[in-house]
Write a protein that binds this DNA or RNA. Structure first.
Length: 719
DNA sequence: TGTTAATAAATTTTT
DNA sequence: TTTATTAACA
């Protein structure tokens, strides 16, 4: 019987995969190309450890980036082992850090009832904070402060670690960071980056507890290693002192989240920090045709400093990649829809076709045309369930019940539905809270007790406070879904949306009902975490797993998504739309050298999503932000050898040599192009207007900023 | 308090 | 062009 199990673990593997799965103890880096069976290696490795090496599932720590990946891994391992895996710490970095912090809240310096803020909560908190610091939002955009703070935390830097910069702007940001930390501390709030940072600091500073986990986790496995940021890497270092138990899988060519703090360099650091490591490359691809792979290989070869990897397939070359030069974006969408129609007509599944694009804004036209053609489709991205306004309102009430001092939640619902508590009352309330350095809840209690407060204000606040206190008492012993139900009814939230006759109101009511349902299902899930109340667990779940984007996943429909969200997926038929300079690679990525390489990796990801048929399309003219632009075709098209491409011509006529010809406009200038000016120096063309002698171009110069120039006079030199 | 007009901005996104 | 946010208004 044992023997059979080993067969099922090893048989589906190729030699390289088998080598990785059965490797004896040592740090191991698996460089897994797109479609080379990365997840399979990871899951089979775990199965191997448990079945053959007799490692207890409890001593395995497996980390992924998304909940989806974690779920998939768990499912596949259970299928492989015929065993439940609940004893295994398997989850996202954030999920596991959260688990650690809940377990050791006191040692980590957190209140037992600490709450997790999602990005939106964090943004709102910062907006309030900036206001309370009397900083002008226009000069200090909350988004920028948020970005700054998260970037620091991702690097493991606390405000007090940082030396005040000479740059006054950064100095102010640092002050904001400082104030933000204090505010979070005071209100028991933890943002996403804080989960990781706090867990790291806590493990670092508590040698005894660290020793416990070091002993426990005999094996640490990491998926998508190229996406780890500095603090995640430091975290892994702490947990793998033994040096021989870290198994990471990743692909430097698929690192596309550098802008979010991910460090491909971690792969190189790994090689230095774990000198005894082994490196295994998975280069056999089971997904795409030979043409697609050769194109992808050729494209990515334009990047420097790669670890190097060449995908190959045992299958045939397949069809060439089709390139279509559309007149404009309308024509492009029209072309794609026609080909989709054909595909469906041939009896293929719609869900096996995907339209991929660089930016979300591009989806609109495809959607319009798909609607007109009556083809069902699904757009990925956008608001997820737990991010919807009405759901966040309901959760805010629940959070207030769990923790009265959660000011963000207080502000969110104190006047939702309207209770006559307007901006003025809130201003006084905030003022009281600030001077007394207390929470809004305490400030409101204070106002109610103070005889000097105007009667109306006092009445309204008393009402609100009683509502929350009352709800907390009433729902105390109830099952979770009853609690949720009670809250959305008694607070008037449900009634508020039921009365509303707006377009979205009906959907909102449905969503609130769905929330009750989600709570019911959640309560039935096996309880992994010890002493936590169901409500606390549910709130954490809502923040950490925001849910799916759209519900109608079961219908067979065409998939629309950005290149980023396509990572990890595969489709028989792929359209890569908008292959234009300035769009893809995006304009802003042209300004920094490293970012162009990331765009190229993104293109590599896009190409390797296709299993059988791939279309690359671009428009010779595109309306962008209400202006007509005449972009050049993407350099990425030109980086693919023409032997793998075939230009598509509508209306039959077959053209001469395959491959896209660059299409400069009359002046030889196009958006995104680098230029040199005799006086202003080097810059990038942002847009152009008019034609012939009237042609004007807008150029962003490195030194003198953005300028409009007459193309005829400026004597711009292409670079 | 909710609506409307004006204004500004405009990649990529998971946790 | 669309979208979001904000200030002014009824």
């Amino acid at each position: 019987m044992e023997y059979m199990d080993i067969t099922s673990i090893l048989e589906p593997l190729n030699p390289a995969q088998r080598e990785a799965v059965t490797a004896s103890p040592s740090a191991l880096l698996v460089l897994a190309g797109a479609g080379s069976g990365k997840t399979r290696v990871l899951t089979h490795r775990i199965a191997w450890l448990v079945k053959v090496e007799q490692v207890s599932p409890q001593s395995i720590l497996a980390v992924t980036f998304t909940n989806k990946a974690a779920l998939e891994m768990r499912g596949r391992i259970e299928a492989l082992l015929h065993l439940p895996t609940h004893g295994t710490w398997m989850g996202t970095f954030h999920g596991l850090a959260h688990r650690l912090l809940r377990r050791h809240a006191r040692e980590a310096g957190l209140p037992e009832a600490f709450q997790i803020m999602d990005a939106d909560d964090q943004y709102r908190l910062l907006r309030r904070l900036l206001k309370s610091l009397s900083l002008d939002e226009a000069r200090w955009p909350p988004k920028q402060a948020q970005w700054f703070i998260n970037a620091q935390k991702d690097e493991g830097r606390r405000a007090h670690h940082m030396v005040a910069s000479h740059d006054p702007f950064e100095r102010q940001l640092l002050r904001i960071y400082q104030a933000y930390e204090e505010l979070c501390e005071r209100s028991g709030l933890v943002d996403f980056a804080e989960l990781l940072l706090r867990a790291h600091e806590f493990l670092r500073e508590h040698a005894d507890i660290r020793a416990h986990y070091l002993k426990r986790f005999r094996h640490v496995l990491v998926d998508e290693f190229q996406d780890t940021n500095a603090i995640q890497y430091a975290w892994l270092r702490l947990l793998t002192e033994a040096q021989d138990n870290l198994f990471v899988v990743g692909d430097d060519d698929q690192s596309i989240y550098g802008w979010r703090g991910a460090k491909v360099e971690n792969i190189f650091r790994f090689q230095k920090d774990y000198p005894g490591h082994r490196l295994i490359r998975l280069e056999q691809n089971y997904r795409s045709t030979g043409n697609i792979l050769s194109a992808a290989n050729a494209l990515i070869a334009h990047n420097e400093g790669r670890l190097g990897k060449t995908l190959w397939t045992a299958g045939g070359a397949g069809e060439p990649i089709a390139v279509y030069a559309a007149f404009n974006e309308q024509d492009e969408a029209y072309f794609v829809i026609e080909r989709l129609r054909q595909w469906i007509h041939e009896g293929n599944r719609r869900s096996e076709a995907a339209i991929l694009y660089r930016s979300n804004a591009q989806s609109r036209l495809f959607e319009e045309k798909l609607v007109a053609a009556g083809i069902p489709y699904r757009v990925y991205g956008g608001l997820r369930f737990f991010e919807r306004a009405e759901i966040k309102d309901a959760l805010a009430y629940l959070r207030l019940i769990a923790n009265r001092h959660d000011d963000g939640s207080f502000e969110r619902v104190v006047n939702t539905p309207t209770r006559g508590i307007g901006a003025k009352s809130l201003d006084t309330l905030r003022e009281v809270a600030r001077t007394r350095r207390c929470s809004l809840w305490e400030a409101a209690s204070g106002l109610c007790a103070d005889a000097g407060t105007p009667g109306r204000t006092r009445l309204l606040f008393t009402h609100f406070l009683q509502l929350i206190d009352g709800l907390a008492q009433e729902t105390a012993g109830l099952p979770l879904y009853e609690q949720v139900k009670c809250v959305i009814e008694k607070t008037g939230l449900l009634g508020h949306y039921q009365k509303d006759k707006g377009e979205q109101a009906e959907a909102r009511v449905e969503n609130l009902e769905e929330l009750v349902n989600a709570a019911r299902l959640f309560d039935h899930e096996p309880q992994e975490d010890d002493a936590l109340s169901p409500l606390t667990r549910f709130l954490a779940h809502a923040a950490l797993e925001a849910g799916e984007g759209q519900a109608d996943a079961d219908e067979d429909c065409v998939q629309l998504m950005t290149l980023h969200s396509a990572k990890g997926l595969e489709f028989q038929l792929v359209f890569l739309a908008g292959m234009e300079e300035g769009l893809f690679p995006s304009l802003q990525s042209l300004e920094e050298a490293g970012r162009l390489e990331e765009e190229r990796r993104l293109c590599y990801v896009g190409l390797t999503r296709a299993k059988r048929r791939l279309y690359l399309t671009y428009a010779e003219s595109r309306r962008l932000y209400g202006r007509e632009t005449y972009p050049r075709s993407s350099r990425f098209l030109r980086e693919i050898p023409t032997e793998h491409l075939q230009e598509v011509r509508l209306r039959g006529a077959i053209s001469g040599p395959p491959g896209p010809a660059p299409t400069p406009d009359a002046e030889g200038l196009s958006v995104g192009q680098g230029v040199r000016h005799a006086v202003f120096g080097e810059g990038i063309v942002l847009q152009s207007e008019g034609a012939g002698s009237q042609c004007r171009v807008q150029v962003k110069f490195a030194e003198v900023g953005v300028k409009w120039l007459m193309a005829g006079y400026a004597k711009l030199q292409s670079i």
